[in-house]
Each structure stands twice: as structure tokens, then as C-alpha cells.
Write a protein that binds this DNA or RNA. Structure first.
Lengths: 342, 342
DNA sequence: GTGAAAGCGCTAACAT
DNA sequence: ATGTTAGCGCTTTCAC
């Protein structure tokens, strides 16, 4: 076993209380006691044990993070933001992924709660119908949603306005002259954001009297390949949309690859607009048009919000604020004006 | 305070030992005691407190992960692999990033050790000269390096053979007829892998009697922009290399963007080869040629290795194995045969 | 300024 | 099969 405060006390010839004091409030210890203790700490290679401290304190200075997957850059960036902000505040981060499986959400949260994390930052499949969040609410565990943008309940969250952002993106396509605009998404049931973005698409289409097309819903939210049936649609010039609005950038880039594979050009044959604004999109040729959300900032703000909730427990009604960060429509070569000759 | 095993015992009318037994070895508890306890657990919403358990056990069933940054997909994938494998074994993951700052490595590790993680998976700037690893060795903390491929010390690691992989990549370029091949890298002092890859480049060049060019060393390892001086080199057809071997894919994609910006075409004017084989490289047009390493698998294997070391403490000499995973040269349109007319 | 002692939640002897 | 108890490492009264 590694040396404890006890051996340090023994070695330094003081009581464990004094050692503890030096560790926490160095000023309250006499100079020579401090000297002896520091010497003992050095000699023994003592390192405080947070487990003991946490047990005693009832806090862990640790936050949990639960996201679908790190394969999507967006969540990796967000986690990076959380971690950076946490480290600045001397918090540690426990990380879990759910692979978009709703049943894994509760298991992940249970594990974090068993570890007695002080709070949780998470993205769930559906923030308005989540038994996991019900648990958190009931048990008054501080948490902040990221990317989720709950509609009904007063659940704290940090996100862009998904509907509005999608609306902006689609409106942009419409202004470029597109009328046959279709949405491509991963399964809606695993992502309420995707559904909200679809609503934004619908709204924009209706505002301009355009026909809302049935979205192409594919099995995965990350690297995906179009099915043969879907490819058939694109092969037929009379069937294919002139512009595609994708629920995230990974899907957008995947579909661009698939379109190239069947001989279609982007943007000449099909314009493609993504969502997320992942950094790699800017390195593509043509550059990927996308609605950028500030992922790292989302993570950072979520952490700040969470820490505030942890450290200033408001027993009255929690100020469960929905924090909306600005999105940006990033224009790139993957979309072009609609041209009747194409 | 949340209910403890104590309140459960009280509520169920049994001793805390019996509750503990039900939690750990359910068979050793009578049917009706189990019934009462489960009822009490349900009623109180009891959740075991790992802090207490860990303090008692001297273990935490938690591993720490330290990597430079999640902005590089490679590390995100690796962390994903670690997390998945950890969850399967009921381990939790504490995550930290260092932003490629060597001084942050030791701070990160110190924090993890204070949390009493059972072991650490990490990537350091230089595995052969790391005071952080010295500490870990001295204190006999189980750890496994990822991506690092230590040369001298017997430090456990999981990686590809960086030198060999780079050698393969450059040999491929040479076989395509390239003779002016230059390496582009982030700062070597922050990445021993990059240096090893450079050595692989050197070796391949020398084997074919080609001139080793001074590498272009840029300040960052992730999204970077070429400086004006470097761009000048590329503008001059007599100065620029016909092929560029980059120390990672992010740099490769960045430089491709920069080359496009000054009117050069990839691969017609310059062939570009990356390293890592990030998934997005395959979605590019032209597809990024790269040496692919199995990042998720690296993370997974590292976790498995670490858990083995944790659970089967070998007091003799630790079997510090350097585990090399196979790399693959992935061929894409970003490289082409060298043509004198170009 | 310092020490003695209680107790955070839990598990593992040891007893019965 | 169950209860009693010690103790993991730490902080924090409460005395002195």
C-alpha cells in the first residue's frame, strides 16, 4: 500500500491532523512542523488519496460525460472542451459512450452515480422522453445536456437552436434556386436533434411553398453508405433532389463519396449541405457547406454551468436554463446555385 | 446525503453486513432477507457508493487515459476503443488531455494517481525520456503506452512500427517514380512518433540513393497552415518536392488545402501521403493516401493489456511487452506516379 | 498551533 | 445464514 497521511505523520513526528492541515490550509501550521512534514512527504513519496478525501467530503470533484460516440468529431471536440475547462477548475472527467443505444444511457449514468460524480454532462437520444433524465431530476443530481435542446421540460442544456439553424441552412439552399431539397439523416429515434433539424427543414420549405420530401433515413449516424435503393433514386435525374441537407457532416461527406462513386458531381449534379461544421469539412475540396456549431465552446460552457450548479446548490427552483449558442452557416463549394441545365 | 448501506440495513431490519453480502455475493443471503433488502433498496433509491468500496478495497476499477488532444481523430478513436473495452470489463475511464505540452503530462498523471486509478493508458511526447514514465516505473503503477514506441527502456506499449510504416509509405512513393520526396511534420520534440517516422523516411531514401531533404517542421500537430516561406518553396517548381510525406493525416489534409490555395493540384503537381488513416481521409476527393494504423484496436488492446497487468500483479520482472500492430498502406488518389512533364 | 477522536460507506474477518 | 467490528485515508470538530 502506498503511504498514507498516517505514515507521513509518524515520520514527521506530528499528528495526522497536522498533516491534513498542511495539505489543506498550509498557513495554519507552524513553520518547523511544515518543514518536517514536507520532508516526510518527500521521503515517502506521499500522494494524497482522493478516495479518502471524497468519502469524507461527500464530493468527488469529478464530472461524468456521456455522449453517443467519439467517432463523431463533434462529440470529441465537445469532450475536449469539457476536459479543458474542468482541468482549469481542478475537476476530473469520467467519460462514457453509448454508441447511440438508448438502453446504454441509463447504465452509463448509473455507473457514474455509483462513482459519486458531482454532476453529469450528457447527450441523450431524446431529451423530452428520457427515463435517464427522469432519474437525474428525481435525485437532484446536477446535469447539463449538450446538443440536446429539450422542448418541454425545464432541463438545463447547451446547444445551438437546431430548428433555426436547419431553417437557415435550407433557406440558403432555396435562395440559391433549389426547389427539390431533400433531407438525409440517421435514425430520428436515436437523435432528437436530427428530428428538430428536420422540422427546421420543413418550416423553410413550407414558407417558400416548396414540397417537403420524405427524408432519407439511414441506419447510422456516422460513416454510412447509401443503400442500393437510395442510390437508384440519385441515378434517376427526375427523381433526385438538386440539393441534399444532411443531419450531420459525417453523413454529408459519406454521401458525397457515394455520389461520386456513381458518377455524380458535387455540386454540379447535387448540392450538399451538412450540419456541425467539423474542422475537416473546411479542408475538403470542394469545401463542405455546413451549419457550424461551436462544439468545444458547448462543452466548455456546459462544464461551467455544471460547476456552478454543483458549487452553488439552489434549493429553490433550479435555474434550469436552456442556453443557445449562435450557429453559423458556412458556405463552401459543395453547394451551388441551381441551374436548369444541370 | 444519499442513502447508504446503513439506512438500507435499518429499513430492511438486517445488519449492514447482510446488505453488503447481497450486493456482492447474492447467493450467500437467505431468500427472505434478500427480499426485504431489495425492497428497502428500492424504497430508498439506494445506489452503492464506490468511494467507500474503493477506499476499503484499495482499488478503483478505474483507468486513466492521457493523450495530447482529442482534436486529432486518432486519439479520439483510441479513447473510444479504450472506453468500449473498459465498459465490457466494468472499468471506468478518467480522461485527460495535455495539448502536446510535456509539462502537462506529469500534472495529469499526478491527478490520476491522486484519484487512485488502477492504471494508466497514455501517449507522451517522448517515451524514452519522460520523467512522468519514470515516476510510474518507480511507483510500480501499471501503465501502457499507446502510439509511443519506446526504443530503449522496457516500457509496455501498443503501437504500429512507426519507422517501418513510414519506410513502407516512402518506398511506395519511390516506386511510383518520385525522387524529390520531402517530409512535413509537427514539431519533433513534441512527438517521438513523428521523429521515428522521419527515420523511416530517411532509411527508405538512403536505400534508394535518394537525397534526404530537410523536413518541413511546422508549429502544430493538428490543423496547421503553411507559413509564407514554406509556400514560397512550393511555388517554385525547381524547389518543390514532387511528393510530400506528412507525419499525420490532419497535416496532410491541411497542406493539401494550402497547395490548392496557391493553385497547385494534388496529385498532379504534388503527391501527398499522410499517416494514421483517419476515416475521413477515405471520404476525400481525391482519397487521401495514408499509412493506416488501427486506432480503436490500439486503444482496446492497451486496455486489455493494462487490465491484465492490474489483475495479475507479477512481482517478478513485469513482462513489459512492446506490442506492434500491423499497419496498412492505403492507396488513394492523392498520390500518383511521377511524370517528368508535370 | 496541535492532538485525539469521530465518522464518511463499505468489506472482510471473525464470531455465532 | 447473519451480526459485530475493525479499518481503508481523510477532514473536522473539540479540547488543550
Amino acid at each position: 500500500m502506498r503511504p498514507s497521511i498516517k505514515q507521513v505523520a509518524l515520520e514527521a513526528g506530528v499528528s495526522i491532523a497536522t498533516v491534513s492541515r498542511l495539505l489543506n490550509k498550509p498557513d495554519s501550521v507552524s513553520i518547523d512542523a511544515a518543514g518536517k512534514i514536507n520532508q516526510a512527504i518527500e521521503a515517502l513519496g506521499f500522494r494524497p488519496n482522493f478516495t479518502g478525501r471524497n468519502l469524507r467530503a461527500g464530493r468527488s470533484r469529478t464530472v461524468g460525460v456521456v455522449v453517443p460516440t467519439l467517432s463523431n468529431t463533434v462529440f470529441a471536440q465537445c469532450l475536449q472542451g469539457v476536459e479543458t475547462a474542468a482541468r482549469q477548475r481542478d475537476y476530473s472527467v469520467m467519460f462514457t459512450a453509448t454508441e447511440y443505444r438508448q438502453q446504454d444511457e441509463s447504465a452509463a449514468v448509473e455507473l457514474l452515480l455509483a462513482h459519486r460524480v458531482d454532476g453529469i454532462i450528457l447527450t441523450v437520444a431524446n431529451a423530452d422522453a428520457s427515463s435517464t433524465l427522469d432519474v437525474l431530476d428525481r435525485e437532484r443530481i446536477p446535469y447539463v445536456l449538450v446538443y440536446n435542446q429539450p422542448q418541454q421540460a425545464a432541463r438545463p442544456s447547451v446547444s445551438v437552436d437546431n430548428r433555426d439553424a436547419a431553417h437557415d441552412a435550407v433557406t440558403h439552399l432555396i435562395q440559391l434556386g433549389h426547389t427539390r431539397i431533400q433531407m438525409l439523416s440517421g435514425q430520428f429515434h436515436a437523435s432528437d436533434r436530427a428530428l428538430q433539424r428536420y422540422q427546421g427543414y420543413q418550416q423553410a420549405m413550407r414558407e417558400h411553398g416548396l414540397q417537403v420530401l420524405t427524408p432519407i433515413e439511414i441506419p447510422r449516424h456516422t460513416y454510412a453508405a447509401l443503400s442500393l435503393e437510395h442510390l437508384q433514386i440519385f441515378r434517376d435525374p427526375s427523381q433526385r433532389p438538386s440539393a441534399l441537407f444532411c443531419s450531420n457532416d459525417l453523413l454529408a461527406l459519406s454521401v458525397m463519396r457515394d455520389l461520386r462513386a456513381i458518377g455524380l458531381r458535387v455540386p454540379d449534379d447535387v448540392s450538399v449541405m451538412g450540419f456541425d461544421g467539423i474542422p475537416l469539412g473546411e479542408l475538403m475540396d470542394p469545401m463542405l457547406s455546413s451549419v457550424a456549431q461551436p462544439s468545444e465552446q458547448i462543452g466548455e460552457l456546459a462544464l461551467r454551468t455544471l460547476v456552478r450548479a454543483i458549487e452553488e446548490p439552489q434549493d429553490g427552483q433550479p435555474p434550469a436554463s436552456t442556453q443557445i449558442l449562435p450557429h453559423t452557416v458556412r458556405l463552401g463549394g459543395s453547394v451551388r446555385t441551381f441551374d436548369f441545365h444541370s
